[in-house]
């Protein structure tokens, strides 16, 4: 497979009255064509800001990408003039946001919102755009597509709105879709429908996907490759098997131990991570997980551990990666 997106040393910072918030602090990962990559982490770990940085949608002047490069098919997106970047957004890289309630324009019809992207990027006439919109709605499993085009977002349920968002994302046949918590606002049966739809469409159309989520179950079900983020950095990456069965970072291990599982009988005590995530405006030299880590010692406070190779595509940024407990017990 060939490389589609390569992010290197990305740093995005926000300049606030409380100091400089290092929301993304040296993130490096890549996405190959047709692959599904998950970025997983808790609130405020920088996973959404990474996505916004790729799309160059970080709100300036409060926030700015201060370092790194984002190579998309050989071009550095960060160096493109705004004019050129507009051609990339929605055309080569599309985005599906979390909130299907707020990310559609409430005063424009579904048809107008769908055809706008198509016309903007492909320069086709009204009739062609409309035909394409009908085709797209069919693709995402919406019945009665012709009628839907004249409806407004408030006519649709949350799941249907998210289908429209996916149709919009697919409209220009992008190479990459970034889905930021695409199903978090949805009910679980609808979540399963939407994720299955996205999985089938990306596979059939050969679209690569970056799925940003806090749900470890969703990651296990859908991702080829997983990046675990904590406090603005990727602290572990690898295949889903690597991450779930052989975690090499205490944070990943702790996350897996603290999530209740549907397939485990009741009664077992959860083993939560103590403490709170750190304030991103007040990080020191050392490992940012150190205050909550059971394995931390003096060395962890001196410098941030380098990302080291474990095996295959499995990497971990921890000095203690070879001293961790055995991973979670196998599901009985």
């Amino acid at each position: 497979m060939t490389e589609l997106l390569k992010i290197q040393g990305l740093k995005t910072q926000f300049f606030t009255s409380a100091g400089t918030v290092k929301a993304v602090d040296g993130v490096t990962y890549d996405v190959e064509e047709g692959e599904t990559v998950a970025v997983v982490g808790e609130s405020g770990c920088g996973k959404s800001v990474t996505a916004l940085s790729i799309m160059r949608l970080v709100a300036e002047p409060a926030g700015r990408v201060v370092d790194g490069n984002i190579m998309f098919q050989g071009t550095d997106l960060l160096q493109l003039p705004e004019e050129e970047m507009r051609k990339v957004r929605g055309n080569n890289i599309a985005m599906v946001f979390q909130e299907p309630m707020t990310s559609l324009n409430p005063v424009l019809s579904i048809g107008l919102q769908l055809t706008e992207t198509v016309q903007q990027h492909l320069g086709v006439d009204d009739a062609t755009a409309r035909a394409r919109a009908v085709e797209l709605l069919g693709l995402v499993g919406m019945s009665d597509a012709e009628r839907r085009l004249d409806q407004y977002p408030h006519h649709l349920s949350g799941g249907m709105r998210q289908r429209v968002m996916i149709a919009m994302a697919l409209s220009c046949e992008p190479k990459l879709i970034i889905a930021d918590e695409p199903t978090t606002a949805l009910d679980v049966t609808i979540q399963a429908q939407i994720l299955e739809l996205m999985k089938n469409l990306t596979r059939d159309l050969g679209v690569a996907m970056i799925i940003i989520t806090h749900n470890l179950g969703v990651v296990a079900r859908y991702a080829d490759r997983v990046n675990v983020m904590y406090a603005g950095k990727i602290i572990e990456s690898g295949t889903a098997e690597d991450i779930y069965h052989n975690p090499k970072h205490p944070y990943t291990l702790a996350l897996l131990k603290s999530v209740p599982r549907l397939d485990q009988p009741r009664g077992a005590k959860l083993d939560p991570v103590d403490g709170q995530p750190p304030d991103l405006a007040r990080l020191d030299e050392g490992c940012s997980f150190r205050p909550r880590c059971r394995y931390a010692d003096a060395k962890c406070g001196m410098s941030f551990p380098p990302t080291e190779h474990v095996d295959g595509i499995h990497y971990s940024a921890c000095f203690k990666k070879d001293e961790l407990d055995s991973p979670m017990k196998e599901a009985s």
Partner: peptide
């Protein structure tokens, strides 16, 4: 059954072995 089926389990091996029968339609 549909509801339980729809909940993903944080374990890729378990997930790969599960049969997903996804309930259609909306509430």
């Amino acid at each position: 059954r549909a509801l339980l089926d729809a909940v993903p389990i944080p374990d890729p091996t378990v997930e790969a072995a599960r049969q997903h029968k996804i309930v259609t339609g909306e509430i």
